[in-house]
Computed example of a mutant assay.
Amino acid sequence: MATYVLIHGAAADSWYWGPLAAELRDRGHDVIAPDLPCEDESAGLAEYADAVVGAIGDLTELVVVAHSFGGFTGPLVCARVPVDLLVMLQAQIPAPGETPGAWWDNTGYGAARQEADRRRGVPEGTEEDPVTLYLHDTPAPLAAELMAEHQRTQAAQPFGEPWPLDAWPQVPTKALLSAGDRFFPVEFMRRVTVERLGIEPDELPGDHMPMLGHPKELAERLEAYRAAR
């Protein structure tokens, strides 16, 4: 039995892990999905990692799954507690000393997103609504609940803090991408993953929130990673 540690992204709470957590618990695993202090203007990356490490406590056989902005927190947790496997799920991959705020320009996100939008036929300058951008492959009731009840204000503090590790932690790492994500286009994420981690990512169907739209397949992928480590 493993303990899956699920780290959510920016401006949200841990609710969105629910369908995946249920799938993993049905397979006999423990699951923790702590809420990060994203509304706290005094909380930075260290405090985000503190929240996760505190929730882990004495649990062992850890599989850390970091999603989106959670990619800045996941490796920090791995540097502090013994982790068997880190899975970067459609996650931002930081470089040593890089602030989350600088990540976008440093990775060439703007140009990559513009090209991906052009390929989809989105007129330049169009502001797409969140459901169209993030949740187009999520079941409508779950998308509506997420938007209505689980959006949180995201404090600016962590975006100006340099990522504190000198190198990637010594933990087996996998990268899993959502093939249909419009916010983090898959071609862009694949390039960043290869450049920064030197590994080829895998893909599964879905938008930016595959844990809502494809929880069973995501659980199967995670279990396959765990079994093969």
Rank of each mutant, 00 (worst) to 15 (best):
P169I: 10
A156Y: 15
L45I: 11
E187N: 11
L133C: 06
V63P: 05
A10F: 10
A219G: 12
D35S: 09
L176V: 05
S68H: 06
R118I: 12
E217M: 13
L212D: 02
G71W: 00
F183T: 13
V83P: 03
P34D: 07
E195D: 15
R182V: 12
K174Q: 13
G9Y: 00
V83A: 05
M1R: 12
A144W: 00
L76V: 15
A140L: 13
F159H: 10
H29D: 03
G97W: 05
P94E: 09
G97D: 01
A12S: 15
T138N: 07
L85E: 02
P215I: 00
R191T: 14
T3S: 02
E223M: 15
D166L: 07
W103V: 14
S178M: 10
L76E: 12
F183Q: 14
R196S: 00
A156L: 15
L197S: 05
I56R: 03
C38D: 09
L222S: 02
I56S: 04
P164W: 04
M1E: 01
E195H: 13
S178T: 14
L142M: 04
R191M: 13
P210I: 11
L36R: 02
V194T: 09
D40H: 06
R113D: 11
G121M: 10
Q92S: 11
F188E: 00
E128T: 11
D58M: 03
R221I: 12
A148N: 05
A95D: 05
H208G: 08
Q114R: 15
T132E: 04
T138F: 03
V131G: 00
G44W: 07
G70S: 01
R27G: 00
